[in-house]
Design a binder for these strands. Sequence first.
DNA 1: CGTAGTATG
DNA 2: CATACTACG
Lengths: 272, 272
Amino acid sequence: MGAIVTLPLAENSRPMRVITVNVNGIRSAASKGLFTWLAGQNADVVCLQETKAQEHQLDKSLHYPAGYHVYYHDAEKKGYSGVALFCRRQPDRLIRGMGWPDFDGEGRYLQADFGDLSVASLYLPSGSSSEERQAVKFDMMARLMPQFKRLRQMQRDYIICGDWNIAHRNIDLKNWRGNQKNSGFLPEERAWLDELLGAAGWVDAFRVVNQEAEQYTWWSNRGQAWAKNVGWRIDYQMITPGLAGKVRGAAIYKDQRFSDHAPLTIDYDLPL
Amino acid sequence: MGAIVTLPLAENSRPMRVITVNVNGIRSAASKGLFTWLAGQNADVVCLQETKAQEHQLDKSLHYPAGYHVYYHDAEKKGYSGVALFCRRQPDRLIRGMGWPDFDGEGRYLQADFGDLSVASLYLPSGSSSEERQAVKFDMMARLMPQFKRLRQMQRDYIICGDWNIAHRNIDLKNWRGNQKNSGFLPEERAWLDELLGAAGWVDAFRVVNQEAEQYTWWSNRGQAWAKNVGWRIDYQMITPGLAGKVRGAAIYKDQRFSDHAPLTIDYDLPL
DNA sequence: CGTAGTATG
DNA sequence: CATACTACG
């Protein structure tokens, strides 16, 4: 038998894999196999939203996957919101929140820095439950825009992952016509993403490699939304332009259902 | 073929069947087949406790079994307590509560009169959740005793069915030794039943025909209580002495599980 | 542990 | 409709 020769890839050609998923309760998602699935994904960074737990309620054995540095940033209110990061490599720095007490108390932003790359888990408020919450969402959007513009001036690369709770274009949800007055597809919300992805210079990493319709990441639990694929694309990895050319592939995982959102995986041609 | 002759039973020899069951949520019990089972029982009166619903939340088709006059007496607080009566024959009179606003607002007593017989559904407070609730239970017991003594002076027969939340004797629960300091088997509670069944002259209908041990009607949901038959007999049909000789049979139904309590059926040699 | 209610999405 | 928390038992 001849010897099998494997050519090792150059260090900087192994892709960096980033997964983002709104888990709608990390304990629920865990019970549906999220961590088993993650163990096979070989992700470098995993960004979670809506953990709906406080760290003291979690199991060391279950919710702290082996081989990762695990960071939770919880809401003060029990069972509400919360984001997390699982990082293969130990970050040089961790940033919890935006420095805004109202936003930060809801556990909505967690950032890890690795050299000149930052990866963040963001959970934008939903506006669907009331007028008041829609006002909070608009307020957060207004405060976040200058922040995102500022980050673009830094000499750093950013990957801001998360549940942005806004579908961008008609192609990004099944019933765009019927949802123009609904939170998540309001003209002001779409214009905000237009600005982020236009004047502010950010890039929707998924769309770099995939321009197809019906690429949804969220389906309502009501009715037969999942079965009929009546979905929305509201989970994104937003990246600074220097990374755009390094998006190698993107995938939405629908074979299992861990929550009402599907995981979004993007591979980048980056060393990490 | 020869003619089949069936001898009709005399009117007053058909037994009257009374069933009592704490349903721990009538909607939950319904989903587990309570009403399907009841339809085959041919009961004359069914006494329910812990309906945990207000009448407007119930389905006419499901929670009002055909062939019965149905009466619910709900707690003011949603999802809490509540008793009900299903009566094959229309009662001459219906009595809601004891005339005590605190007790009656919790939906704990409902009585139907048929000629000189009264059948009631009673739900005595539980004392297990706090010292305060144990005090309420003791207070109710103190007020009920003179009431039950008064009823004994009436020229009527009474069947007071329900969840009395007290096991009477050592034989009436699995771990009597370990429960002597626990609500439901406190010395004061047992003494109260001693008085009811002694000086006050009431009769525990089940014990008229069954003196065996391990005749439980309730099992904790915690641990393996049901599987290990670690139960308590806390549901009774308490009757006036004139009915004692008419208890024909008694049964606790354990083949299906509608709630944490089992239905208690007693047949009486009474016309109704 | 299990049935409810409520908030939130 | 689904995941949480809370009350109550």
